[in-house]
């Protein structure tokens, strides 16, 4: 059984008119069944309103299914007795760095989670130190979070989650508000977490370049999973992605354009180096 598993997960909510009367139901997620392997890096793509954030919120039981089931680390998120176990298994990082940092000092902020879990004080300090090291922010431990850059704040938020020793970390558009450097910092941190801590990573993003290293990509539309596969498989379908209001990385687009102009370039190019190599080989052969 995967770390995260769903069986026909459905989430419906009522739409209200101005007087508060129910005028209909909206299905944000419609019978989604999926299974995510422990330790994998999974990306979820989808346009605004496709249901991907709603799905993410199910993973740590901010929302629970109205029909169907979600298991996190084998525990049913609908069971109120499991709530704390679920939340400890799956931590979340949100889009806006300023909305999720509460401490006045970096290390206090990171210690907040484990403290709430009832971890003994000495262990908390150990966890805080380890987590800040893991995200490369240890030298800022006694700083005020206010003075950090966006990328640094997001890394502190990630440290706050991993200090709770989760099995899985869900990042909901963590780079949307960051500059190019901040984006790189956060992605590098996510990669390292996965390699060193073996945490399952679920990344929701609108930046196509950020998912090329994922093991598996899900594309959502209208509450359904409409495409899934490796990044190479997914980004091989430029036209289908566009239909779902998505895109491909710029290098993939350039490769596609060159192919249309008659160059013999392999399908599914995702990285700069791959395209450069393909072109150099082609040049040699001519």
């Amino acid at each position: 059984m995967g770390i995260i598993q769903t069986e026909k997960l459905t989430f419906e909510y009522a739409k209200h008119d101005e007087e508060g009367n129910v005028i209909g139901m909206n299905r944000a997620i419609d019978e989604v069944t999926l299974d995510i392997d422990p330790g994998s890096f999974v990306a979820i793509l989808g346009h605004n309103g496709s249901g991907k954030s709603t799905l993410a919120k199910h993973i740590n039981a901010i929302l629970v299914p109205t029909e169907g089931t979600m298991w996190v680390n084998g525990r049913d998120t609908k069971d109120p007795m499991e709530l704390w176990n679920v939340r400890q298994s799956a931590g979340m990082v949100f889009q806006n760095p300023d909305n999720q940092i509460i401490g006045t000092v970096v290390e206090e902020d990171v210690g907040f989670g484990p403290e709430n879990l009832g971890v003994p004080t000495e262990d908390i300090w150990k966890r805080v130190e380890d987590s800040l090291k893991a995200v490369g922010m240890i030298e800022y431990r006694s700083h005020s979070p206010n003075k950090l850059s966006g990328g640094q704040k997001q890394r502190v938020a990630i440290a706050g989650v991993i200090a709770m020793h989760p099995k899985c970390i869900v990042l909901d558009e963590p780079t949307a508000m960051l500059d190019p450097n901040g984006r790189k910092e956060v992605l590098r941190t996510v990669q390292e977490l996965r390699e060193k801590e073996k945490v399952t990573v679920i990344l929701i993003t609108h930046y196509m370049e950020e998912v090329i290293d994922a093991d598996h990509v899900f594309v959502m539309d209208e509450g359904h999973v409409v495409m899934e596969g490796t990044p190479r498989e997914i980004f091989g379908c430029v036209d289908e992605l566009k239909k779902y209001r998505l895109d491909v990385p710029q290098v993939t687009m350039l490769a596609d354009e060159l192919k249309k102009r008659g160059l013999d370039i392999p399908n599914g190019i995702l990285r700069t180096e791959e395209l450069v190599e393909a072109l150099c080989q082609l040049k040699q052969n001519t």
Binding site: H47, N48, S50, Q95, A176, H206, D247
Partner: peptide, 9 residues
């Protein structure tokens, strides 16, 4: 365009 999907951007 912060936070918008590619088409929205």
């Amino acid at each position: 365009t912060a936070g918008l999907d590619p088409r929205g951007r």
